[in-house]
Structures are given as C-alpha cells and as structure tokens.
C-alpha cells in the first residue's frame, strides 16, 4: 500500500540546514496498523506530513497504492488527499461553526457528492462511532473523546486507502484514549490501513507493528502482539 525509498528531508533555518529525515525506507501492506514512535525531533511528524502529502520530500520515492507521489500541484495534492487519505489530528481540528454531521460530510462535499447522499453517509459514519444522536451538535458541545470520534468519522467518510493519525490520543485522558484506540482497532479490523504517530508505549502496543524513529532514521521495525483496547474499556 505504502512504499517509501530513501526519503530525505531537511529544513532551512536561516543559514543552517536541519536534516530531519535521513534516508527512510519503509513499506506498509494493506490492512496494517502501524505505530510510528520516536521522541520529539525524531522526524516522525515530518514523515507523517510527507506521507499525507502536506509536505514534500527533498529526495526519495513515495508510492501510494501504486501511484507515484511526486511534484504534485496544490490542486492535484488536494485531490489525492481527498481520495487516498484520511487525517486524524491531535487537536481534532474540527471546524467549529459546523455541526458534527457537516464536519463528517466535508470530505464528501469536496468530492461533489450530492447533498442528500452526503448527509446519509455522514450519519452512517457517525453511527459507527456511536455519535448519531450528536449529529446536530457543534464541536464545542462535545467532549474531547467525542470530538476525536467525530474526527475519525470524518477521516473515514471519504473511504480513504490509508488513515493517518497524528497523536490521536495526545490530548485525551487514558480512558478516552483507550476508547479512541478501540475505535481505531475496529476500523483496522475491517481491513483499513492505519498509521498512528505516537510517543506513548501503551498506545503503540495496541498496534500490530511498531516503527521506531531516532534522529531521522528508522532504528527498529518490529511486529508486536496487539493489545486490544477493549480490555481496558468497560
């Protein structure tokens, strides 16, 4: 599903150049649930941004579902993001003047799906994350965990090939974190490919594979026994 070969990325900071990614080789097959771990500054967010086409690599190859991703115009990148990727952010990033349902329907709107169909799908996804009754509520009327579930529903709405989650539990307490991870595991069980960036060990062990980044290189890539989050959720 994801193929990365010798990926380099550096940022210019005034006269200095900061080499963040120093040759990353990585691949993920369809249906995998991968945790990307690393301390801050290890380059994990940069990697995720490049995977999410929010940022561009200086060199290296990136293929997503057989499509080479390089030299994209903004319009093309927007199209690919919409079609291939779903994003979940640490700070939820819901649009606060739109209701939960409108937020979920947003990616479909950019796909020019008809209004009625959009709403139907959005409600369907909200139901799957257990928030159907909250469809008409604005984000600031929801709790943190609920917001993140709406965000996950939004990321799933466009039926993307890969779900990218950047510290999805970073702003949540552990109980809610496990609820969110439970949801992510369930989505993975249905065959979706998911990449989770995290620095929490317990969250990482709820994935099926852990990739450790340090100073811009992958230092460890191992399969782990998945811990089901549902064990912690009553």
């Amino acid at each position: 599903m994801i193929e990365i070969k010798d990926l380099h990325k550096s940022y210019k900071m005034g006269s200095n150049s900061l080499h963040v990614l120093k040759g990353i080789n990585f691949s993920a097959k369809a249906g995998e649930l991968v945790a990307i771990m690393g301390s801050s500054g290890s380059g994990k967010s940069t990697l995720l941004n490049i995977l999410g086409m929010l940022d561009e690599a200086d060199s290296g190859e990136y293929t997503l579902d057989g499509v080479p991703i390089r030299d994209l115009s903004e319009t093309k990148a927007a199209q690919y993001r919409n079609k291939f990727l779903g994003f979940v952010f640490q700070s939820f990033n819901l649009i606060n003047y739109k209701s939960a349902m409108e937020n979920v329907a947003l990616p479909l709107y950019y796909q020019r799906v008809a209004r009625k169909e959009r709403q139907e799908k959005a409600l369907n996804y909200l139901e799957r994350v257990g928030l159907k009754e909250w469809a008409e509520h604005l984000p600031n009327e929801l709790s943190g965990g609920q917001k993140q579930r709406v965000a996950i529903a939004r990321a799933m709405a466009a039926e993307p090939k890969v779900l990218l989650a950047d510290e999805p539990t970073g702003a949540l307490d552990s109980k809610t974190s496990y609820e969110v991870m439970d949801l992510i595991q369930k989505i993975n069980d249905e065959g979706n490919t998911i990449l989770v960036v995290t620095h929490e060990e317990d969250i990482a062990h709820m994935c099926k594979r852990i990739v450790h980044l340090r100073d811009g290189v992958i230092v460890e890539d191992k399969k782990v026994e998945q811990v089901r989050a549902s064990e912690y959720v009553q």
Partner: peptide, 15 residues
C-alpha cells in the same frame, strides 16, 4: 487553521 484543515481534507485551492 480552518483553511489548513479544509485543504488537508482535500478542498482545492480554487474552491
């Protein structure tokens, strides 16, 4: 930020 979110979700710059 909102514009950033919308673009991450795939809204085209023209839109």
């Amino acid at each position: 930020k909102e514009i950033g979110i919308r673009r991450a979700l795939g809204e085209s710059p023209w839109s």
